[in-house]
Nucleic acid binder design. Structure first.
Length: 707
DNA sequence: AGCACGCCGACT
DNA sequence: GTCGGCGTGCTC
């Protein structure tokens, strides 16, 4: 206890105030005063969680610092309502990381800091059902009990490492301190086993390990593997599908240093982990590491920043690394480790490209694909059919006058969906989720000849049933997986062998092992080849590799003959170089080609980008704002002796879907070869934009993924 | 982002 | 005459 007291009388010219990260999308920290009767050194509150008045209500906040020289006028500074007892104290390292992230993504520190705290712990103590101390005790008890029951079950023996795995494990272990390792290997090459070995090494030394995965809800296998390998250890699982109470319990185990392994999705990257000694990011290329609810950040990049600040190793694993990571490895910034062997001994699947041109298709399938599906069914094996469109049909059209099922709030069509339970159909907009019944006759001309154009998962499922009447067919897409339990039951039915053909979207490619999978059909491999988004081919390659990986996980034996799993890619552009790389399972060739193209066209990862997005009720307001922003930016870069001479500002353009829910949307891309210059520019530019009067709502996205 | 204030349309 | 839509402005 110090005698440092807080003088609230306004005669004192300098008073010590706390600087807090408050959960609002405003830059910087906010100044608050301690209650006058509290005679405690304000510094002792650094890192504590507080409830503070904000506007008319209350907000959760974290104390980041103190200052003797507040910026606000004394009468503007409000007093902290209360301290949240029992909350973990956020370490200097954690605060540094949040401040780094806030400056990098040009958002408020509180926007990042507060949402990582479980909701039930963020409330004022008086309104909480359970105190944090109670939660903590319960979580620790639960973890203890979990260990006890786990240790009774036999621990699965560690599999023998391949020569490749041993070499990589040694290479990673030989480097101490911060190092980004890029672990490159196809599905089944044994990346997971390496993660487990690394984790074992770290926890043997008393460290905590953070394991980040794309979407844990869909990959319970990994959790099972980790649990069975570490029955004596405490594992904190953090993902968006948990109940708030469970999330709080797991989070406390991590934050109190009790969890040996923190297994989580992107949300977990900012979890306080006091003894963090290594980080693993599985499927580092995966887009789901990006964007949280509102703020767009890359969990992978933040994980690297975190490892760097703590001077600890980080391992990024992928069969198809992002171009950013691959280039960093080429330049020696990351250490590249290749895992060439297929550790499970199963062969890679055979990929075949099917030219759709001049072919008579049946239900969207080429004759080759239908024959393959039928043969695979005869052989008693399972098939996966990929179609990247939800619903029955992407658009409903009037054959007489050309009317289409345009959404009246968005620049998109309403998609025809078959209702899950009833027989009926509805038109649903995938952007604003508005629904309409299917009109009996054309709203424009009254003709009754309304035709569904194109096909989605529902139609494929229906048509396949006609084509192969004996096959047991199931469907898996977001519409199905949104209904609780439905996705799980379909997956377990597929695992149990009760499904012959599984039709679905990309959701199917992630982390499922189908033991008797003999065939994968990709109905339309073409989206992405001629997309306006320069990253589309990269995503296509990663998706197709992942899909192919599904088909090659296990050796399939029919009778005495070993059957190689087959992947059929239907395309109208069979000569596109992407397919040659795919057939050869040659990511490196694809990456070399892609990087050369990116360098030639001055695109990331050779350039750094930021995207200013704006929306308003009228397109004039949106474009007006972005034009102003462009002019301001242009002036900054053209000033005499400007350090921003190399900044490039593009013309504002409407977004690919220009209108959503009656808001017009447009964007302005800016780009620079130097990250440092880009961020210095953004700081000045954004400050000017904030003081620009406009009807448009806007936000900045750093390192945008989709343009 | 919330939340309050303020100004215009369709209803008990 | 009001309820409520959302446009606008403010938050230490």
């Amino acid at each position: 206890m110090s005698n440092f007291s807080v003088d609230t009388s306004s005669t004192n010219p300098s008073e010590t105030v706390l600087l807090l990260a408050v959960d609002v999308p405003l830059p910087g920290l906010f100044e608050y005063r301690l209650p006058a009767d509290l005679k405690v050194d304000p510094k002792t509150f650094i890192g504590q969680m507080m409830i503070v008045p904000w506007g008319t209500g209350l907000r959760t906040a974290v104390v980041f610092d103190v200052t003797d020289t507040p910026n606000s006028a004394p009468e503007k500074i409000r007093t902290i309502k209360e301290l949240v007892p029992g909350a973990p104290v956020f370490s200097a390292h954690w605060r540094q990381m949040v401040e780094f992230a806030a400056s990098y993504y040009h958002c408020g520190p509180g926007e990042l800091a507060v949402p990582v705290i479980p909701k039930v712990m963020r409330r004022p103590p008086s309104t909480s059902r359970r105190s944090i101390e109670e939660r903590r005790a319960k979580a620790a008890h639960g973890a203890q009990k979990g260990k006890a029951s786990a240790s009774r079950s036999a621990q699965s023996p560690n599999p023998e490492l391949t020569a490749d795995q041993t070499r990589v494990l040694q290479a990673i272990g030989s480097k101490s301190g911060f190092q980004t390792h890029l672990l490159f290997g196809v599905t089944g090459s044994g990346k997971t086993e390496l993660y487990l070995r690394l984790i074992a090494q770290q926890i043997a030394n008393g460290g905590q390990v953070l394991l980040l995965v794309p979407e844990i809800g869909l990959t319970p296998q990994l959790l099972k593997i980790v649990e069975s390998r570490f029955p004596e250890q405490t594992i904190a699982v953090l993902h968006s599908g948990l109940t708030e109470a469970k999330r709080a319990a797991a989070w406390l185990l991590a934050a109190d240093g009790l969890a040996d392994i923190v297994l989580g999705t992107r949300l977990a990257v900012l979890t306080p982990i006091p003894n963090l000694s290594a980080i693993v990011v599985d499927e580092e290329h995966d887009a789901s590491f990006r964007q949280m609810d509102n703020i767009h950040y890359s969990a992978r990049d933040l994980a690297i920043a975190r490892a760097s600040m703590l001077n600890i190793p980080i391992v990024l694993g992928s069969a198809t690394p992002s171009m950013e990571s691959w280039l960093a490895a080429q330049r020696g910034k990351y250490q590249l480790h290749r895992l060439a062997d297929r550790a499970t001994g199963s062969s890679l699947p055979e990929l075949c490209v099917i030219n759709l041109r001049n072919q008579t298709l049946d239900a969207g399938f080429s004759p080759t694909a239908i024959k393959a599906l039928s043969d695979n069914l005869q052989a008693g094996l399972q098939s996966l059919v990929f179609i990247n469109r939800r619903g029955y049909s992407p658009v409903l059209q009037c054959n007489a006058c050309g009317w289409v099922s345009q959404c009246d709030s968005c620049s998109a069509y309403r998609v025809l969906h078959r209702q899950n339970n009833q027989r009926g159909y509805r038109l649903i907009c995938h952007h604003c989720t508005s629904q309409r019944p299917v009109p009996k006759a054309c709203p424009d001309c009254g003709d009754v000849d309304l035709q569904p154009m194109g096909r989605g998962t529902q139609k494929v499922e229906e048509q396949l049933a006609t084509l192969l009447p004996t096959a047991r067919i199931a469907r898996l897409d977001r519409d199905v997986s949104n209904k609780t339990g439905q996705a799980e039951s379909i997956i377990s039915a597929a695992h149990a062998g009760d499904v012959d053909i599984l039709v679905g979207t990309q959701i199917l490619a992630k982390g499922h092992d189908f033991q008797r999978l003999g065939l994968v059909v990709v109905m339309d491999a073409d989206q992405g080849i001629f997309s306006s988004d320069f990253r589309a081919p990269e995503r296509l390659f990663a998706n197709l590799m992942q899909v192919a990986g599904r088909a090659g996980r296990a050796k399939i034996e029919t009778g005495t003959i070993e059957k190689k799993a087959q992947v059929l890619l239907q395309t109208r552009y069979p000569d596109h170089p992407i397919f040659a790389s795919l057939i050869a399972h040659d990511f490196e060739g694809f990456a070399a080609l892609t990087l050369a193209e990116r360098e030639q066209n001055e695109l990331p990862p050779y350039k750094f980008q930021a995207l200013l997005k704006a929306q308003a009720r009228s397109i004039e307001d949106v474009m007006g704002f972005l034009k102003t922003a462009q002019t301001i930016g242009q002036q900054l870069s053209e000033e005499q002796n400007s350090e921003f001479g190399e900044m490039r500002l593009y013309q504002p353009v409407p977004m690919p879907v220009a209108r959503v829910a009656n808001f017009d949307r447009a964007q302005l891309l800016i780009e620079c070869a130097s990250r440092k210059v880009l961020h210095a520019f953004l700081n000045i530019w954004l400050a000017q934009l904030r003081s620009t009067k406009t009807r448009a709502r806007w936000q900045l996205e750093v390192d945008p993924l989709e343009i």
